[in-house]
Computed example of a mutant assay.
Amino acid sequence: MNTTLSLADQIARELRADIIGGRLLPGMALVENDLVKAYSASRNTIREALHRLGQEGLTRYVRHKGVMVRRLDMGEVRDLFVVRRTLELQAIASSKPLSVDQSERMDNAIDATTLAREREDWRAVATHSLTFHQQIVGLLCSPLFDEFFAQVIAQLRLVFCAAPDEQRFQSPWLERDREIYALLVRGDKPAAGEAMSLYLDDSERLSLALFAHP
C-alpha cells in the first residue's frame, strides 16, 4: 500500500478494490465492528474510510442498518457514461503512439479477460475489462484523472452486478476491447475513437436496460 496515504485512505482504497473486484456487491452491509477487526484499526479510522467511500458514491447510510454498498439508479448510470465518453474518447483522441509499458498493460488486461472468460468467471471478466478501460484513461497521463476514474469504474462495477445473466451481459465486450487495442497499436486514432464511441453507446443502452426491466 502507498505509505503516503493515511490509514483511512488505504482502507478506503482496499474496500473500493473489493467493489471493483466484485467481492462487495450492492446491498451488502459494511459492518463497523468487522472492519475494525479486519484492519486492526480504530473505530474512528473505519468511519473515516467509510465516509470516503460515501463521498465516492459507493456506499450509503441506511437507518437501522448502517453503511451499505450502494445500488445506483438510471440517472446515475447515464451520468457515468457522460464521464466515460468525456475521458475515454479524449484519451484516445489526444494519445501519442503507445509506449511499450502502455501496450503491455492493455495487453495484460485483455489476456486476463480472455483467461477469465475461458474459465467462465464472468465476474472477473467484468473486472478485467474495466481495467482495460482504466488503461485507456491512463493515456491522458494524469494521476488525478486516474484516481477519479478508479472511482467511476467502481460505480460501474455496481451497475454490472445488476445483470441477472452475467454471461450474456459480459460476453460481447472482449472482442470489442481487442479491436480498440489493435487500432491503438496501429496508431489509427480516428477508427479507435469511433469503435470506442459505438462501444460506449451499446454499453450504456444495455446498462440502462438493467434498470428499466428489474
Score class of each variant (00 low, 15 high):
R23W: 08
A212P: 01
D177R: 06
L200D: 03
I153G: 03
R168G: 05
P172H: 12
Q167E: 15
C141D: 12
Q155L: 09
E48P: 03
E204M: 08
R84V: 00
V36S: 11
V67G: 02
G66A: 07
Q102D: 12
A126F: 14
S129T: 01
M1P: 10
R78A: 00
I19S: 07
Q135T: 11
H133D: 05
D165V: 02
E166A: 15
A91V: 02
P214V: 12
L35S: 13
S6A: 13
L208H: 02
V67Q: 09
V83C: 07
R84Q: 10
Y199M: 07
R78D: 01
V36L: 10
Q55W: 12
H64F: 06
M28Y: 01
L15G: 05
F132Y: 12
A17I: 04
H213A: 10
Q167F: 03
E204W: 07
L200G: 04
R60F: 14
I46Y: 01
Q10Y: 04
L35G: 12
R71K: 11
L206E: 02
V185Y: 08
V31Q: 14
V36W: 07
E179F: 01
G75N: 10
R178H: 11
V82H: 06
R13W: 06
E32A: 11
R13T: 04
Q102V: 01
L7I: 09
E194A: 13
E76F: 00
R13G: 06
T59S: 13
D177P: 00
E204A: 06
S99E: 02
F169T: 05
A191F: 03
Q167S: 12
L198R: 15
